[in-house]
Design a protein around this nucleic acid. Structure first.
Lengths: 138, 138
DNA sequence: TAAATTTACTTGCATTTTGCAAGTGACAGC
DNA sequence: GCTGTCACTTGCAAAATGCAAGTAAATTTA
């Protein structure tokens, strides 16, 4: 992705300039909900992102300090992608998208059940998961 | 925008298939926060959307029942674009994006002040605005 | 220890989406 | 009836995405 100019000073517009594409939030989802952390992990996702797109999205997220790229402790061949606090704080956005989807889209029952569960205590769910993830970055 | 296949059953992915582009949520923002309702209104926004893109985005939102296209009461030359309940219920997503932007991006003080204000009673703010907007669709 | 596999990419090319400028045709205001 | 507004459409250029193949270092396996 080429660096495109900020379109306006609007918070929504500026945010979409950063992660408003079809892939960035899916990478965030993978990191937040499935603990994925390597290039290969992300490639395995159901949505089948192309390698060049994944590279450009990871770079973009890194440039915006939403993720960090680190040496992998297990192997020099791997890189470890880790959420920053800024990235973890996108969780509420993702949760609201899930709740909207649950209300209006046709989803598999198994997924609906999970969302319904989290909905019972939305704030608590977000807080708990956020704290868990923030433990991991200390 | 051509109709592209759903990438997966994931709620986040399915939602992004619908409104995960750089313009759709800005149109929603204009309808929710600035009461915009005509083609010309949307064109006037700071971000300067092109007419052909606006046409395709409005069509897409209409196809997904997020907005409705109606005769304008003032003039036969105009169309009136109106949020549906499904569209209004995207407000929490937009609010969370604004809160994230407020925390992590550089925004004009005037905008920051408004967001800070809404943050004090987020749930109340969302509920009140949602009810107001839903009044308008009865 | 040589061969195969994994990992994180890059490159090239086709397709799709976006952006820009210039229409168009119905309607409205004077 | 002339001019401007409104909601588009069209054509073309530029950018982003998608796909397949290749690469080079590191690791595993035979």
């Amino acid at each position: 992705m080429k660096k495109t100019a900020k379109r306006s000073e609007c918070p929504v517009s500026s945010s979409l300039d950063i992660f408003g594409d079809k892939w960035s939030l899916l990478i965030m989802r993978d990191m937040i909900f499935y603990n994925k952390s390597t290039f290969g992990d992300f490639l395995k996702s159901e949505e089948k992102i192309a390698t060049n797109i994944l590279t450009s999205r990871l770079l973009n997220l890194e440039e915006h300090n939403i993720i960090e790229k680190l040496e992998h402790p297990d192997s020099k061949a791997k890189m470890l992608y880790k959420l920053t606090e800024k990235g973890i704080d996108l969780l509420p956005v993702i949760v609201e998208i899930q709740l909207w989807a649950n209300k209006y889209l046709t989803l598999p029952d198994s997924i609906k059940a999970i969302i319904e569960e989290g909905k019972k205590d939305k704030e608590g769910f977000i807080k708990t998961l956020t704290n868990q993830l923030k433990q991991g970055i200390k």
